[in-house]
Simulated assay, not measured.
Amino acid sequence: MRTGHTFTRHWDLETKQHELLGVDLGEGVARRGLVLALVLLAAWTLPLLLIFGLPGVYTVSLYLSPPIVLAIYGAQRSGRTERRRNMTQWALRVRYLTLGHRPIVCGGRRAASRDEWIPLRDRWGERADIITDLPGLAPLTILFGRDRARKRTAGPDLVLNARPRVYGPDRVWQARRRFGHVKPTQKGQA
C-alpha cells in the first residue's frame, strides 16, 4: 500500500504580533490566537457586563479566564487532524451532533431523502441515554426519540464471495475466439 506525504505543513509560517497598543510583547504572540482571544473576550464579556455590571475583585477571573483559556486551547493544532486547529474540530463536532450532514447518495447524483440522514439519537449514541437519565432532563427523550431502533431504509446486507481466477494467455485466446472477438485468419497470412 502506498502512502503519501504532505510537505506544505513544513511551510506553515505563523505570523506573530510583537507590539500591541504600544506595549512590547517580546518574542511575539501568534496573531491567530490573539485575534481569537479578543473576539471571544468581547463575545463573553459584553453580555456579562450588561447583565451583572462591572466585575469585582473576586469575579474578574470569571470575566476573563474562560475566553482566554478557550482561545489558548482552540488556537492550538489538533492532535487528530494535523492541518486543523482545535477550534475547527470542536465546531465540526458540534455541527455534526446538532445538524448532522447530508449523505452522499450515488456519488451525489440524487439528493438524499430525510429518512436517509442519520437520526439525532444515533449521532449522540450513549450520550443521549446518559443525558436523558439525568434528573430533570427526562423531557429531552422527545428530542432524542424513545426507541433506539432505526428505521431500515435499505435491504439486508449483501454477502460477496468473489474468488479471483487467473487465466493464462491460451485460455484468454480461446475465449476471444469463442465469442467472435478474433477475426479468422486467411490462408497464406501468418
Rank of each mutant, 00 (worst) to 15 (best):
R102A: 07
V35H: 05
V35G: 02
P55E: 04
W44Q: 08
R95L: 08
L50Q: 14
A112F: 10
E116H: 10
E14K: 15
I130K: 15
A91I: 13
Q89C: 02
R121N: 06
M87P: 01
F52K: 15
E14S: 11
Q17P: 01
V39N: 08
H18K: 09
D133E: 14
R114K: 14
G100C: 09
R83C: 01
W44I: 02
F7V: 14
R31F: 00
L13M: 14
I68T: 11
L48K: 15
A112T: 04
L97C: 05
V94H: 04
L50K: 14
R127N: 10
Y73P: 00
A43N: 08
D122R: 15
W44P: 12
T81C: 01
I118V: 15
E82K: 11
H18L: 09
K16W: 14
P66E: 03
I104M: 11
V35T: 08
R110F: 09
L64R: 06
W117T: 03
F52R: 13
W11P: 03
I131G: 06
V69M: 09
G53N: 10
S65V: 14
L34E: 06
L50M: 13
V35R: 09
L49W: 09
A75V: 05
L13K: 15
S65T: 10
S65A: 10
A75H: 08
D133V: 03
E82T: 12
S65R: 10
Y73E: 12
T15Y: 02
W124Q: 03
H10V: 12
L13H: 14
R85Y: 11
D129C: 05
L54N: 09
G56M: 11
T45W: 14
R9P: 08
I131T: 05
R80L: 12
L13Q: 13
V35K: 08
L34W: 04
T8H: 10
L48F: 07
W90T: 02
T6G: 13
S113E: 06
L97S: 05
L62M: 12
V35E: 02
R110P: 05
F52A: 12
A30S: 05
T59Q: 07
Y96S: 04
V35Q: 01
L48D: 09
L92G: 06
G108K: 02
M87L: 14
M87I: 15
V69K: 12
L70H: 07
A128T: 01
L54A: 13
A43T: 13
G22D: 03
L25K: 05
G28Q: 08
I72C: 06
Y63I: 02
L97N: 08
V57M: 08
G107E: 03
L120S: 00
L97W: 15
K16P: 00
L97F: 15
L92P: 00
L40V: 05
Y63G: 03
W44A: 04
R127I: 05
A71K: 11
Y58A: 07
S113T: 15
L34S: 02
A37Y: 00
I51Y: 01
T59I: 00
T15S: 13
L70Y: 00
T88S: 09
A71P: 09
R102T: 07
E19M: 08
I72F: 00
V29H: 03
L92H: 11
R102F: 00
Q89N: 06
H10F: 15
S61R: 12
A111I: 08
R93C: 02
V60G: 01
H10I: 14
V105C: 01
Q17M: 06
W124L: 01
G79T: 04
M87E: 02
L99D: 07
R31L: 03
A43P: 01
G28I: 02
